[in-house]
């Protein structure tokens, strides 16, 4: 039996909305430690890793580890039926082929339940090693979203280079070129405007903007996002979900053919 009650039900909606364009079907894995998902996009160059710890739920019960395959499009359709302030409870039997989502309004005057059919999904689980990243920049999530969107109107790829002067995002295309540099700013008046840069050594990598833009759909989940880069390795784009876990994206860098 799996049962998880999430008071901040819209968090689940935000998570699914953030990943559904990248991944169409995915297995949600439940264990006593929490609710996780790992999935690659169709072309296997990017990966989504969600972790929601059991202690972040108001109630969490998982008697047996289980993997629930869901169509994220269909899941998004169901979660769209939840009110923004609704409490969401997920329930599934150990050997069932459905998962039930129950939505309760905060005033307890409306309760609804939706049953989603589970699917068998073959998925490979990747082990992501702990990495000593050369550079990590933590910037407002909205700023990251804006940089990716602005550069997309110039080119298809972005070179992200971290040096002691800051982190520069550069793109070029038929229109011309663009450079956007963010610098450390840990004294900004508002905490949500702060930028911090942890640089061990300079690093520069090239990425497809299409994917970085897609990751920015997670913007409503967190005030800040961290980009961690190491030479010749996938970038990690990390949104921390307060008191619960994280939604991370990994993207392989572009390399010379």
């Amino acid at each position: 039996m799996f049962e998880a009650r999430l008071v901040q039900g819209n968090l689940l909606k935000k998570v699914v909305d953030a990943v559904k364009d990248l991944v169409t079907d995915a297995n949600f894995d439940c264990s006593s430690s929490g609710f996780t998902l790992q999935a690659m996009d169709n072309s296997h160059v990017s990966l989504v890793s969600l972790s929601l710890r059991s202690d972040g739920f108001e109630h969490f019960r998982c008697d047996r580890n289980m993997s629930m395959g869901m169509s994220l499009g269909n899941l998004a359709k169901i979660l769209k039926c939840a009110g923004n302030d609704d409490i969401v409870t997920m329930k599934a039997a150990d050997d069932g082929d459905t998962v039930t989502f129950m939505f309760e309004s905060p005033k307890e005057d409306r309760v609804s339940d939706f049953e989603l059919k589970l699917m068998d999904i073959d998925s490979e689980h990747l082990g992501i090693p702990d990495t000593d990243y050369a550079a990590t920049v933590t910037l407002p999530a909205a700023e990251y979203q804006r940089i990716c969107r602005d550069l997309s109107s110039i080119g298809d790829t972005v070179v992200i280079s971290a040096t002691k002067d800051g982190v520069k995002f550069s793109s070029s295309g038929d229109v011309g070129t663009a450079n956007i540099t963010v610098r450390q700013n840990t004294t900004a008046d508002k905490k949500e405007e702060q930028v911090s840069i942890d640089l061990k050594e300079p690093v520069a990598l090239t990425f497809a903007l299409r994917y970085l833009n897609s990751f920015a759909k997670a913007t409503p989940l967190a005030s800040h996002v961290s980009l961690s880069m190491a030479r010749d390795l996938p970038v990690m784009v990390d949104y921390q979900i307060s008191d619960m876990g994280h939604l991370r994206f990994y993207l392989a860098p572009k390399i010379e053919d």
Partner: peptide
């Protein structure tokens, strides 16, 4: 032209 490697070339399958 540049390309991207499959993520499986960076991370192990478990």
């Amino acid at each position: 032209a540049d390309k991207q490697r499959n993520l499986k070339e960076y991370f192990n399958t478990v």
